[in-house]
Amino acid sequence: MGFKLLSKLLVYLTASIMAIASPLAFSVDSSGEYPTVSEIPVGEVRLYQIADGVWSHIATQSFDGAVYPSNGLIVRDGDELLLIDTAWGAKNTAALLAEIEKQIGLPVTRAVSTHFHDDRVGGVDVLRAAGVATYASPSTRRLAEVEGNEIPTHSLEGLSSSGDAVRFGPVELFYPGAAHSTDNLIVYVPSASVLYGGCAIYELSRTSAGNVADADLAEWPTSIERIQQHYPEAQFVIPGHGLPGGLDLLKHTTNVVKAHTNRSVVE
């Protein structure tokens, strides 16, 4: 069995187990497998329904001669939608809004960016022009300005110390501490036991640490421990890039980060 097929099978099995364990909360999309990078042309966006009122959005972007996937989250909030992270750029984010209108038909009224990198804030200006209120932590807003990236308009308070959590509509926002970046936030959907790890969490097929220019490698494993301790009931975990899975993604990420750190020390 090929690795790609095995990865998709694991996603399907995880979703099936969740649907059985929580039949009222989960209505997993039966329309197909989780979209992969090879299936999404740059400039297009796919939506994948995880649970009743919960979707991931998947886009792709060219970077350094390669094409990478990027995940975000959409959560229903009454007759409105909360968006977590842009679709990595203005063109993708405009396509995301169009796809949401086509498939869901509810307005996106608020959006949260989970850290300051372009795959999370690139497209904020498109959201703002569409009347979406954009939010991020003060740290993310400051770092985005320093980096020359787009800056969300509103500040999220109460997320300055490791372990801080605040309720934001249908989700809980959690600051686990520094990891992929010093400002990275985690998003949890309690009604569906869905954990969105953003770039602080890796997919299972990833074996290298990737972009760690703004990471705190020493603190990252401790931050992941905080996530595990705060959300032990999480059933569906979405990484910032690639295929979702279960809580095993947290341990896998820790292993990859520690291996990278150990290699760096040896070198």
Rank of each mutant, 00 (worst) to 15 (best):
M1C: 03
F3C: 04
L10P: 05
V11G: 06
V11F: 10
Y12I: 15
S16R: 15
L24N: 08
L24H: 12
A25C: 11
S27G: 09
S27C: 11
V28F: 13
V28Q: 13
D29G: 08
S31Q: 15
S31H: 09
E33F: 15
E33S: 12
V37E: 11
S38P: 12
E39P: 11
E39K: 14
E39F: 10
I40D: 10
P41Y: 07
G43K: 08
E44M: 10
V45M: 11
I50A: 13
A51R: 08
G53D: 14
G53Q: 09
W55R: 01
S56F: 15
H57M: 01
H57R: 02
T60Y: 05
T60H: 14
Q61W: 13
S62I: 07
S62L: 11
F63D: 09
A66H: 07
Y68C: 05
P69I: 11
N71M: 01
G72Y: 03
I74S: 03
V75T: 07
V75D: 02
D79F: 07
L81C: 05
L82E: 03
L83P: 00
T86H: 00
G89T: 14
A94K: 09
A98K: 15
Q103N: 13
I104G: 00
I104R: 00
L106T: 13
T109R: 13
S113D: 04
T114A: 02
F116E: 03
H117P: 00
H117T: 00
D118A: 08
D119V: 02
R120I: 01
V121N: 01
G122Q: 10
G122D: 13
G123I: 03
G123R: 03
V124T: 06
V126F: 12
V126W: 06
L127I: 06
A129M: 15
A129C: 04
V132N: 04
S137K: 14
P138Q: 05
S139I: 15
S139D: 14
R141F: 07
R142H: 11
L143F: 12
A144Q: 03
E145Y: 15
V146H: 13
V146E: 09
G148E: 11
N149M: 15
I151K: 06
I151S: 08
P152V: 05
H154G: 12
G158D: 14
S160G: 13
S161K: 12
S161T: 08
S162Q: 15
G163A: 09
D164E: 08
R167H: 05
G169N: 03
G169A: 04
E172L: 06
L173V: 14
L173T: 02
F174I: 04
G177S: 03
A179P: 02
H180R: 02
S181T: 09
D183Q: 00
N184D: 03
N184P: 02
I186D: 00
P190H: 05
S191F: 07
A192Y: 06
A192M: 11
V194W: 00
G197L: 04
G197D: 02
G197F: 01
I201F: 15
Y202R: 11
E203S: 06
S205N: 05
R206N: 15
T207K: 11
A209Q: 10
G210M: 06
N211E: 14
D216T: 11
D216F: 05
T222E: 12
T222N: 06
R226K: 06
I227H: 02
Q228G: 13
Q229W: 14
Q229Y: 09
Q235R: 06
I238G: 01
I238Y: 06
P239C: 01
L243E: 09
D248K: 10
D248Q: 11
L249W: 01
L250H: 02
T261L: 15
N262R: 09
N262M: 11
S264C: 05
S264Y: 05
V265C: 06
V266T: 11
V266A: 13
E267F: 06
